[in-house]
Write a protein that binds this DNA or RNA. Structure first.
Length: 750
DNA sequence: CGTACTAGTCTTTTT
DNA sequence: GACTAGTACG
């Protein structure tokens, strides 16, 4: 049976059209991932395309992993040699090989926004620019937009001509780039821009990739920016087999440079493009779709679409307004508990979505009080935690001594008696003699004279060189453990704050787990590659959608996901749509918020609950907000009666009968928990398939008690033989049921 | 050189 | 209200 068999006619058409440019306009819930995966399977199994010639680009690692897994289940073999990756990791992969052509070292480091900020501070200080008048953020945002648009410092200088402010910006941009280059570092935006630069400057390199990627697919095309558009255009220029999938109504990343014209004008750029619309929605009830459609139709320029479903009317939408944000959180938590007690849903069926991360706090508090297991997506990124950044700075220093930022971060962590004066002297010397900071440390004796300070520096240099030597012989996880022990990081944490220390050490434990997982999944694990994977992790990537937990996240993070029950909190004018968008002169800003609302509504499969509070605390001040205009855009007959009253206490009528509310579609998300980032496998080729080293069977079996580093004690439920490893399912006493690979989990029988 | 306090910022969303 | 960066002082 053909892999296309299970698709509907439109989907089939989209999947079977392999040659030439293809634009798939895929409405929310119309099965676009299914089309992409089955299209790929069709290429390999039925059209004789080599997996090696396929490139699939997504925005998040999570999406990439899911796509690979689903393809894997469809094709017999070879899926591991498809290049499935995010824009950023694709570019890193290419730059690692060729960036020396642009004057960088191939083992460059990737700076996160935090690092970029430090560099910017330094630049502004050097140029003696008053940060009160011109805050760093403004420069950084502006530089980021330049890079999204592929504009170089030279372009900006040219453009500025005479205007003082513009010239200042251009000068800062130039200085900032020089600083990065000196540190042998790239920021996130550079990854895309430099790759385009590389392809334009070295056509032979580009051709090499054009010859490899005969078939290119891009997911979430509505969110591409100019640089990404150009990257794809270049790669596809020779063979023109480019298939893009997206939904202009779900374009929600304009603030990050996404250009909605990329999808709206696809047919202008590729006049011979085949355009296919997927309009049948398999996710939501008619009521939910009606609500989504009635909101989005208030937007101007959009591709005409009419989503429909045969799932029936379903339950009405609930709207509830409370007096305070506190009560709002209570109401939501209350409903979730009640539903669950009534056997109508499990915790994992529910997601609470909101506009701003700050809203998560109250919801979290209420969940804790009610004893509800929950997961917050986003907020403070795991990798921006202090302890993680410290350890990573050690690793970066060991890996690439040219990264001044990392060296300076750890030179006095833990305290070694090396102060700001000493660091300043070394940094000045470095700037004057064009040396990087670590080199100056090595020559501290000459620079500072032989004294206490230079002795301390020498000790530090020794320490790093010992680690460097060790790193040649031991694994990354062992290296981390060695560092922790050698510098007594735990002791340092305990001294700083005993209560916090435990949690911080647990986070480091988690980092070690991730290092182990990486080493297991990579062909030839290297420290550089590990560091780059870690740099490109998104909040949503590590989320396990199968755990029975309520999910709390921003509307942005929710894109691409679906849940039986969705709550959208904070439906208030000034919060959602945001105050900024309401005040803006550009009506496009409200339209973007409306698309965000559309995304939120269409996440719901069976039931949608919208809530608002009359007052809430923002920045320590109480604000009184009106009900969101988006609520008024939904026809009142779609709401359950009792709308706008204190409908909290009112029992929802569940007599609609048309739709069974307990149905949990099988297609939600892949089953097994991903061992961290599987991106490394994205680039392995067929060699690996031939050389499968199956783990030896674990020494435990169903019923045995085992111990896990992070989750503590638990009971083994099952042990299944997978393709590369044994997949173990364990019920932990405190953490619930987890599925994991035996090799990564390092379970100990007890 | 290290600590403790203060002032300022943040809150729109993120690879 | 929380966190951070910068400053003054021991």
């Amino acid at each position: 049976m053909s892999v296309l068999e299970i698709l509907n006619d439109r989907q089939k058409e989209a999947a079977a059209q392999l040659d030439g440019p293809v634009l798939i306009l895929a409405g929310a819930g119309s099965g676009k991932t299914r089309v992409l995966t089955n299209r790929t399977a069709y290429m390999i199994d039925e059209a004789g395309v080599s997996p090696w010639n396929i490139l699939a680009i997504t925005f998040t690692n999570k999406a990439a992993d899911e796509m690979r897994e689903r393809i894997d289940r469809l094709v017999g073999f070879g899926s591991e040699s498809i290049w499935v990756a995010t824009f950023h990791s694709t570019c890193v992969r290419i730059l690692r090989r060729h960036i020396d052509l642009l004057g960088f070292d191939n083992n460059f480091t990737i700076y996160d926004p935090d690092d970029s900020k430090s560099v910017m501070k330094d630049v502004l200080k050097r140029l003696q620019i008053d940060t009160k008048q011109y805050p760093e953020k403004r420069f950084l945002n502006w530089i980021s937009s330049c890079k999204d648009e592929l504009s170089t410092p030279a372009d900006e200088e040219e453009y500025a001509r005479g205007d003082y402010a513009d010239e200042l910006f251009a000068k800062v941009y130039r200085e900032y780039q020089l600083s990065l280059q000196k540190n042998n570092a790239l920021d996130f935006d550079d990854l895309i821009m430099k790759t385009v630069e590389l392809f334009k400057a070295f056509p032979d390199v580009l051709e090499n990739y054009q010859n490899r990627f005969l078939y290119i697919m891009v997911d979430e095309y509505q969110d591409t920016n100019t640089a990404q558009f150009e990257l794809i255009r270049l790669l596809a220029a020779k063979n023109r087999n480019i298939c893009v999938v997206g939904d202009d109504d779900q374009s929600i990343y304009k603030f990050r440079g996404a250009n909605i014209r990329n999808i709206l004008d696809f047919e202008k750029v590729y006049p011979d493009a085949k355009v296919i619309k997927l309009e049948q929605n398999y996710r939501s009830t008619q009521t939910i779709l009606d609500a989504a459609n009635s909101v989005i139709k208030n937007n101007g320029a959009r591709k005409d679409k009419a989503l429909w479903t045969d799932r029936g009317e379903g339950e009405r939408i609930v709207f509830a307004q409370t007096d305070t944000a506190y009560e709002e959180a209570e109401l939501i938590v209350d409903r979730i508990c009640r539903e669950r007690r009534a056997g109508k849903s499990s915790f994992g069926d529910n997601a609470v979505l909101y506009r701003t991360n700050a809203q998560s706090r109250l919801l979290e508090e209420k969940c804790v009080m009610a004893g509800i297991p929950y997961t917050v997506v986003g907020g403070v990124n795991f990798y921006s935690r202090k302890e993680i950044k410290d350890i990573l700075a050690y690793l970066k220093t060991i890996d690439n001594g040219r990264d001044d930022l990392s060296v300076r971060r750890i030179i006095n962590v833990p305290k070694r008696g090396i102060g700001a004066t000493t660091i300043g002297k070394l940094a000045d010397h470095g700037a004057a003699n064009d040396l990087n900071f670590y080199e100056c440390c090595k020559q501290a004796d000459d620079i500072l004279g032989h004294n206490r300070a230079s002795e301390k520096i020498a000790e530090f240099v020794d320490l790093i060189s010992v680690f460097r030597t060790q790193s040649e012989f031991i694994s990354i996880s062992e290296l981390i453990e060695t560092i922790i022990k050698r510098i007594d990081y735990e002791g340092m944490l305990i001294e700083a704050d005993e209560d916090e220390a435990k949690e911080r050490m647990e986070n480091i434990g988690e980092l070690i787990n991730k290092a182990v997982a990486y080493e297991e999944s990579a062909d030839e694990p290297t420290l550089s590659e590990f560091l780059e994977e870690v740099a490109l992790v998104a909040d949503i990537d590590g989320v396990d959608s199968d755990a029975d937990r309520v999910m709390l996240m921003t509307l942005h993070s929710a894109k691409g996901l679906e849940f039986p029950n969705v709550y959208i909190a904070g439906m208030e004018d000034g919060l959602f749509p945001s105050y900024m968008s309401i005040c803006s002169d550009d009506p496009g800003e409200i339209e973007e918020e409306r698309r965000l609302c559309y995304v939120g509504i269409t996440r719901a499969m069976n039931r949608l609950t919208l809530t608002a509070a009359r007052s809430r605390m923002t920045r320590g001040e109480t604000q009184y907000n009106a009900v969101s205009r988006f609520i008024n855009e939904i026809p009142s007959e779609l709401f359950e009666s009792g709308y706008a009253k204190k409908s909290a206490e009112k029992k929802p009528p569940n007599s609609t009968g048309a739709v069974a509310t307990k149905v949990r579609p099988a297609a939600v998300l892949p089953k097994h928990q991903k061992p961290f980032i599987a991106k490394a496998t994205a680039f392995t080729d067929l060699k690996k398939g031939a050389d499968i080293n199956l783990q030896t069977a674990p020494d435990y079996g169903p019923g045995d008690r085992v111990m896990h580093m992070k989750f503590g004690q638990g009971t083994v439920l099952s042990v299944e033989k997978g393709t590369r490893d044994y997949e173990v399912s364990v019920e932990f006493d405190s953490a619930g049921v987890k599925k994991m690979f035996a090799a990564f989990a390092k379970l100990k029988k007890i």
